[in-house]
């Protein structure tokens, strides 16, 4: 565990807290992509259910895995049950088939072993890389976003972004290199770059997130 990895994980926790805060205080899920949230639930289920076959690295990892699976299911519940009337499915129209299908193909091409757990892990890594796209698509379609929603997306982007210096550190300090995670992680971070540009030049200077 190094500082970049720790800050990345912390940022991931903060992003989920921001999302829950937005929904519970405004009692709405307006502007939030159910599809992105469903993809994250699938990402966590396919990656972290390795708990069931004994992949227990540390209490830290186990606690985080349980938290991410649990919170993602709770978020889906909030969107689908109490805040259902506030969701507008007509703007959440990104085609999930492409993302899930693409991740499936990538998991069959790029994995460390042709075994069910390894392919599942690789699938979760590739799917995570693109899971934010339906959310960014909503922001692009509506041309604006509530500040709290942009803080959520920014914290989520910072999470995988911070894993990159973590991998550099681990490569030089520990000789550790996980090419699949690194390549997918870089793709994931690149997907956020447009968003981050507007976030830094507008939202952090007190303006509303609006596309030009």
């Amino acid at each position: 565990m190094n500082i970049f990895r720790f800050l990345g994980d912390l940022s991931h926790l903060v992003s989920i807290w921001l999302l829950l805060h937005k929904m519970t205080t405004s009692k709405s899920c307006t502007g939030i992509s159910f599809k992105t949230q469903a993809l994250y639930a699938l990402v966590f289920a396919t990656r972290y259910l390795d708990l069931l076959y004994g992949s227990w690295h540390s209490m830290y990892n186990v606690a985080m895995k349980i938290f991410f699976i649990g919170s993602s299911l709770y978020i889906l519940y909030l969107i689908k049950v109490p805040f259902k009337p506030t969701r507008d499915p007509a703007i959440d129209t990104f085609k999930l088939e492409y993302l899930v299908g693409g991740a499936l193909i990538m998991s069959l091409i790029a994995n460390y072993e042709y075994s069910f757990p390894e392919i599942l892990w690789s699938f979760s890594i590739w799917l995570e890389a693109v899971a934010i796209l339906p959310q960014l698509f909503i922001i692009q379609r509506t041309g604006e976003a509530e500040n709290i929603t942009t803080h959520y997306v920014a914290a989520l982007g910072a999470y995988r972004g911070l894993y990159i210096p973590n991998w550099l550190y681990r490569y030089f300090a520990e000789g550790f290199f996980d090419p699949i995670a690194v390549i997918a992680g870089i793709i994931q971070t690149v997907i956020y770059l447009d968003f981050f540009y507007i976030y830094f030049t507008k939202v952090l200077k007190g303006q509303k997130f609006e596309l030009p």
Binding site: D9, N61, M64, W121, F176, F177, D178
Partner: peptide, 10 residues
Amino acid sequence: ESEKPAKDEL
């Protein structure tokens, strides 16, 4: 010995 990276990352 396995060449697989240990999956301790989240």
